[in-house]
């Protein structure tokens, strides 16, 4: 609701900028995980339509595509020195972190939007990580943990910011390949496309896709949660069976 209101305010603030409409579409709405899944790539296509009365803009169109994976709670821990040893010391819990966050822009984000816009619209990794509502702790050393969170997620390829991730095929048609690493978890992924020109937000469009386990992987995962005891006993039985089989195979006498 608050988000919608903020968006509305932005649109109003942009004044006559409502003249453009943005259409976005995905190469697929479902990424299926099978046994040989090693990650995937989906492509966001977009078109900008300008109504006939509007005059052409001085600057070029700029687009930022943001992909947010399912939310998760994450604890960031810092090792600190206690006597002669290093052990986990201070920690901070973040409650609403997207498991995957990809930001793909057509130019450096600092050139596209002002810091205020970035904060309000959550554009760019920096703005998402610095958002006040992602953690409940209000520590004084808050920033260190936010920085560490971004750094570690980037290292795992789960946070990506690419200033040239969106390319214009024609002045009004663009394409954004979104790489999904194998560790990007199953769930719903939101795609948020924002259109800027001359530092003004012109239009915004959203769509989504899902990453799901299929076939054997899906059945096994369901079985392990719904019939946990049976699943545990089954795994144990398999382990015992293989242990016994090995003695039969290797029996010398």
């Amino acid at each position: 609701m608050r988000f919608g209101l903020a968006l509305l305010l932005c649109l109003l603030a942009a004044g006559p900028a409502g003249a453009e409409t943005l259409v976005a579409s995905l190469s697929t709405s479902q990424v299926r995980i099978t046994s040989n899944y090693t990650g995937s790539q989906i492509v966001v296509f977009g078109a900008i339509e300008r109504d006939a009365q509007t005059v052409a803009r001085a600057g070029p169109y700029q687009v930022v595509v943001t992909v947010r994976g399912p939310r998760q709670a994450v604890t960031v821990r810092e090792k600190s020195r206690t006597g002669p040893v290093w052990i986990n010391g201070p920690q901070q819990k973040f409650v609403q972190i997207p498991a995957y966050l990809g930001v793909f822009a057509s130019a450096p984000i600092a050139d596209i939007a002002t810091p205020g816009q970035r904060g309000r619209l959550r554009i760019g990794l920096q703005a998402s990580v610095n958002a006040p509502d992602i953690t409940m702790d209000r520590g004084t050393e808050d920033d260190r943990f936010r920085e560490a969170l971004a750094r570690l997620k980037i290292k795992e390829l789960l946070f990506i910011e690419d200033e040239r991730g969106t390319t214009f095929l024609t002045p009004s048609l663009f394409r954004t390949p979104v790489p999904l690493p194998v560790t990007a978890p199953p769930g719903d992924y939101e795609v948020d496309v924002t259109l800027f020109a001359d530092g003004v937000l012109l239009a915004r469009a959203g769509t989504s896709f899902e990453v799901i386990k299929t076939g054997f992987e899906q059945r096994l995962a369901e079985f392990s949660t719904e019939w946990a005891a049976l699943y545990g006993l089954g795994t144990a039985a398999v382990a015992l069976l293989f242990g016994w089989l090995a003695t039969v195979i290797f029996r010398r006498d």
Binding site: P70, A73, V74, V85, N88, A148, R151, L152
Partner: peptide, 19 residues
Amino acid sequence: ELVVRPTEPFSLVVSEMRE
């Protein structure tokens, strides 16, 4: 591991997934 200064003092633990 205990006494050597860690190269990355921070670590991440996913505590729960939200649907």
